[in-house]
Write a protein that binds this DNA or RNA. Structure first.
Lengths: 110, 110
DNA sequence: TTGTAATATCGAAATATTGCGATAAATAAA
DNA sequence: TTTATTTATCGCAATATTTCGATATTACAA
């Protein structure tokens, strides 16, 4: 809820959470899969692919973009959206670092 | 063809979104990092580590457990929570499969 | 038995997210 | 110019999340 809990968590934790939040809706996962599949990037295509209205897709794209997972560039009167591969790789590294990094001594507790 | 408008989101998309949602709060990321760091699993420890009340931690643990990211087993009057490494690995694979799997012909559009 | 410690659950308030119709803005095409 | 196309934004209702005090539950200890 509430107050600026940003103060209580470190940057890495907030970054992971921000990426994850962008991924936390099936529509946004579907958008990413679609961008990866077609390897090109027109919003209109996505609107035709997903069972959601155009403003809703636009909103999801905005959130993905804000989180740095995709990027868009204007191409005439369409916008070329595509996956930000650098940030995607970064997210994968962050996730991999949480668990299970190469462990020096793994005592298994569970 | 990809996702058609009449389909709802598929299981893989929902699974990714569910995992990601569990990761989408800094407190839950912090909990996971802590579980990984100490490699043992007592809720009380976590309450002392994070700037959140005990019911709040308990709620976050519940969500992580529900998503399959951690598992807990009763040990006397404490509960041993730890990362579900199998599911964590599964999540990493799912994320890796979205982007960027080895592509035979990668025309870069962005 | 009674008391203490560890977790979970309930309830409620504050806040955030989701979805979409209506509409705006920008460019393209005619 | 006018009209169509593409995408973004506004506004609002419905729903979900987050937080924590109060309380319940469970197990151990004395």
């Amino acid at each position: 809820m509430g107050i600026s809990k940003s103060d209580h968590f470190n940057e890495r934790q907030i970054e992971v959470a921000t990426f994850a939040k962008a991924l936390s809706h099936p529509a946004r996962v579907a958008i990413l899969e679609y961008l990866q599949k077609v390897d090109s990037c027109i919003c209109g295509d996505i609107v035709n692919e997903l069972p959601l209205a155009q403003p809703t897709i636009s909103q999801h794209l905005k959130e993905l973009k804000l989180a740095g997972i995709i990027k868009g560039s204007i191409e005439g009167n369409t916008i070329c959206y595509c996956i930000n591969k650098d940030n995607w790789a970064k997210f994968q590294v962050l996730v991999g670092n949480i668990c299970c990094p190469p462990k020096s001594d793994s005592k298994t507790c569970c």
